[in-house]
Amino acid sequence: MSMPGFEEVQLGGKAGLQVARAGSLVHARYKTGKEPAIVSITFGKGVTLTLPTGWDCIGDWQRDWKYFVDFVLNHIYFVANQPVPEDPELAHGVRALLGSYIEQKSLTVSFIDFIDRFGANTAPLERRLGGIEKAKKDAERLYLDSNYEGARDAMASVMEEFLKIEQDSVRIRRRALMWIYLTEWITVTGTSMLCSFVLWTLMIKKRLYREITTTKLVAHENADEK
């Protein structure tokens, strides 16, 4: 909530009135009426928190807020009594990389699957993907230890590796497609040459042409006599 721009995002709206209980902590109020909006309390050994707006009401104005993801994740950290990242920018950077990892991996796997259909050797790429998975696990371990800087660096290397795999995938695809184009070219050219040869031989050179004998009507010798 201490993220920049919190007060400029539409996180409120019409809602039922609520009164903060004694001992609770009011994190945010509605700007106009100053009613408590986001409130927490320590209940026994745990913490409870109330948020007025549902996640199904997420609009473009919230998605456009850079730190909305951090806002959503941090409220879970807060109730679970986990330390909330102190540097929002750093945490946001790591989370953005972790979020894009899922998309990037999905794209890369689809692309490798695509070039595999052309018969390209994708085994080295798959081995490197396995290495990436391990590096991502290391980054996650750093993240779990709240070492966000280390996690960001680790995830940045993972994304760089993705870029390299993508470039190599494109190279392998070009090579695979080159053989396909070459085979197609040879097939088409060969067929064309064969057809041309047959055409030339048969139609121009008339190699199989054989003059036919003239047909003539042979009159029956005794026809008139009859």
Partner: peptide, 13 residues
């Protein structure tokens, strides 16, 4: 059955 002021924006307490 009672609504708040309906402010779309929140301020940090």
């Amino acid at each position: 059955y009672q609504q708040n002021s309906g402010s779309a924006y929140l301020e940090i307490a």
